[in-house]
Amino acid sequence: MPVTKVTRNYQITLPAEIRKALGIEEGELLEVELEGEKIVVKRLKRRRKTLKLGERLTPEEIEKVIEEGMEECMQ
């Protein structure tokens, strides 16, 4: 079983074998929950489409992405 250490800034490093098994990449967001005495770390599921700089979108596509984001915020 992999072991990790809490740093003086209260950070931990996910062991490489865990990151590789789950396909976790740098910059990904993870959700942390407490279940009794267990710390549960889950990949944060983004439902909202992210846009890349320079991506060519029609005004209709932009409007749709905005509407979806607003709906997500209201949930």
Rank of each mutant, 00 (worst) to 15 (best):
M1H: 15
P2Q: 00
P2E: 02
P2H: 04
T4H: 03
T4D: 07
T4K: 00
V6H: 02
V6K: 02
V6C: 08
V6A: 09
R8Y: 13
N9M: 14
N9L: 14
I12E: 00
T13E: 11
T13W: 03
L14W: 01
P15K: 02
A16S: 15
I18G: 05
I18M: 07
R19M: 04
K20T: 12
K20Q: 14
A21M: 15
A21V: 08
A21C: 05
L22Q: 15
I24N: 01
I24E: 02
E25T: 13
E25L: 13
E26M: 09
E26Q: 14
G27A: 02
G27F: 00
E28C: 05
L29Y: 12
L30H: 08
E31S: 15
E31V: 13
E31D: 14
E31G: 09
V32G: 08
E33L: 15
E33P: 00
L34H: 09
L34E: 12
L34K: 14
L34G: 10
E35Y: 11
E35A: 14
E35F: 10
G36K: 10
E37G: 11
K38F: 06
I39H: 00
I39M: 13
I39A: 11
I39V: 15
V40D: 05
V40R: 08
V41S: 01
V41I: 15
K42S: 10
R43C: 06
R43P: 01
R43T: 05
R43G: 01
L44D: 02
L44H: 09
L44N: 07
K45F: 11
R46D: 11
R47I: 10
R48W: 12
K49N: 07
K49P: 06
L51G: 01
L51K: 05
K52H: 03
L53C: 07
G54P: 01
E55H: 00
R56N: 10
L57H: 02
T58N: 05
T58R: 07
P59T: 01
E60T: 08
E61M: 03
I62H: 08
I62R: 07
I62S: 06
E63D: 12
E63H: 10
K64Y: 04
V65S: 07
V65H: 09
I66R: 08
I66P: 04
I66Y: 07
E67H: 12
E68S: 03
E68R: 04
E68W: 04
M70F: 09
M70V: 14
M70Y: 10
E72Y: 14
C73P: 00
Q75I: 13
